[in-house]
Design a protein around this nucleic acid. Structure first.
Lengths: 343, 343
DNA sequence: TGATTTCGCTAAAACGATTTAGCTAATAAT
DNA sequence: ATTATTAGCTAAATCGTTTTAGCGAAATCA
């Protein structure tokens, strides 16, 4: 049989004191509550000896705090998100918080259900990359004084904390880099999406071309469609626009689709076309040619996110103070975006 | 102010019944406990109306069940693990369970601490890819009647449920494939590791060579060292063994290191050497040449794992019944392991 | 009719912590 | 010597559920 763990009452009984006393000592309120040093020490020693650990559930029920933070990302199996998740998890653990991750899959319904579930669980805080359409649910969290930090994207109309990268300028620079390399028919492959970060990337692209009086060429995909279908979409887009000489992909997984598409097109080789991916990926250096990327500063993003979250948790005064962190992304130039010499 | 959610008492009061009654109805025990259909319906209707949801924490405290399963993987940012995690998460959600993931980083200390923490939290079940050295901690969980499922690896001396792939035969076949392609100086790059899955892969490799009277050539890396250092190790290994004509990498991230190493060696080109990676990766098809891989059946692994877990959770009779699932892995042959014609 | 069974419901005790309010004895003040 | 203060501790309420044991009224039985 599972032999029950000792409760605070067991401890109290064995020491012939009240649970109150034990609780005070354990919560470092011995001084404040005038428990004699002698007794306090005795309690601590005994607790250490028997290895007593307070029951977190009971503690949560009583205090209303769970020391759990939820981390809802678009897709945990995406390299960018899993990296951030890993870093946030680590930082949180060090501060005594647990993280529950999950993937929203950019679905409003799933996200909504998850938020509801977490609220039922009285989770302490919410770190979210929200899909378009959950604005009200986030507002609800804020209204009810739950600490919230958004990242990767945000809602312009919502007063929230968020951490993002400067999508507009990053993309602008990436496109400019291509132009400076001599590319002039530059396409942009993105998602049909209302999300700000996607829009900013698109606008950065458009602005860069506009500034150089070049025509934009945009292809939008549907996140919800299966990958295979999106690959085909890209393929026919490329086939129908043979004049293009460079492509910017708006996320790392779109890049992967796109590269597969290029591979499958006989008249096109990855060496013939300038490529920049938004979001870096461990393996991009290994492609032939290596793929240039706009790398988001994963460590800094994670650090900012968890800091804002912990600050809120530790000081309710700091609740939803509307912190906006915009970090620069870094253009990593690899061969794929360098103009090859003509034969 | 956070306006408090209604409690079961509030519901009871408003309906002029006891909390007991409400509880019975809510838990579907109306019939069994002889609550009149009329009243039962009334309660359900009202609960629906006001959108009452039981407080999960209180429920946990009372029942001792949290409906949370912990999922401890080696590294959540590794494609294999994050895929499995995502699938398990999805299946668990559908059955009303939450998942807490975390990364062990193959550290005994971190794993131990995590297990301790989860025990404090009275987590319902444990899904773990254990690092070597935590055998006793796992045994402790089992002794205390906690549902446990290991995957990716297991401890031969431990009576536990586990789900793995047939590492030995999968590797054996992969090496045989290389041999059949005409490669004869085949190296194996792996980790210094006591973990069974790594050993089995190594042994499968050795056996295949032995059967063909070919000499083995093994390089072992250290998981804890930084990636850069391991890349250098591989580089010097390759430089010192110029005679080799094919390599099997024991995990997908080792493959990535190895491919980088090859890229950096001037006299060697990925096209010149046969390559198979244990563990597939989304981007392997995109490499030049595309990388062959032993693909673990991610969906089936996840399905088996969560099924065994749920069976235990739902029927304590089924607790730790020592289920061993060994799934076949699939050799996916891409260009990298096909012998090129000599010029 | 009186005894027994069934029906429909509920009071109250858990679960394991925290916290408020207050008690007793010792010390200080008057 | 009486009162006020303080030191040192604790009883009991509370958080929101589940569940055991049982109560009164109606129905059934003898």
């Amino acid at each position: 049989m599972k032999n029950k763990r000792p409760s605070i009452r067991d401890i109290a009984k064995q020491l012939n004191v009240s649970t109150t006393t034990v609780s005070f000592v354990l919560n470092g309120k011995a001084k404040e509550k005038r428990i004699s040093e002698q007794l306090a020490e005795q309690v601590l020693k005994f607790v250490e000896e028997v290895g007593y650990k307070p029951n977190q559930i009971a503690q949560s029920l009583r205090t209303g705090k769970s020391r759990i933070i939820s981390l809802m990302v678009e897709d945990i199996s995406n390299a960018f998100f899993s990296k951030v998740a890993r870093l946030i998890e680590e930082a949180a653990h060090q501060r005594g918080y647990k993280i529950i991750y999950c993937s929203t899959e950019n679905s409003v319904d799933k996200t909504r259900e998850l938020i509801r579930m977490f609220r039922d669980w009285q989770i302490d805080g919410y770190i979210i990359t929200p899909p378009a359409g959950v604005e009200e649910d986030i507002q609800g969290l804020i209204n009810d004084k739950h600490p919230v930090v958004l990242f990767d994207r945000f809602f312009p109309r919502l007063k929230t904390n968020y951490v993002i990268v400067d999508n507009f300028n990053s993309t602008y620079k990436a496109v400019n880099h291509l132009i400076s390399q001599g590319y002039s028919r530059i396409a942009f492959v993105t998602l049909e999406s209302e999300q700000v970060q996607m829009n900013d990337r698109l606008n950065g692209y458009k602005k860069a071309l506009e500034d150089c009086l070049l025509p934009p060429l945009v292809k939008s995909l549907n996140f919800d469609k299966p990958a295979e279908e999106n690959k085909k979409e890209i393929t026919s887009f490329l086939v129908n626009n043979r004049q293009l000489d460079a492509i910017v992909f708006a996320t790392n997984y779109i890049s992967v689709w796109g590269l597969e598409a290029i591979r499958d097109i006989t008249f096109m080789s990855p060496a013939d076309v300038g490529i920049v991916s938004f979001d870096d990926h461990d393996v991009f250096p290994l492609f032939a040619p290596p793929v240039s990327a706009v790398a988001q500063p994963v460590e800094e993003i994670s650090k900012e996110v968890i800091n804002i979250m912990l600050k809120q948790l530790e000081d309710p005064e700091q609740m939803n103070t509307n912190k906006h962190v915009v970090l620069p992304a870094k253009l990593i130039i690899r061969e794929s975006s360098l103009k090859k010499k003509l034969a």
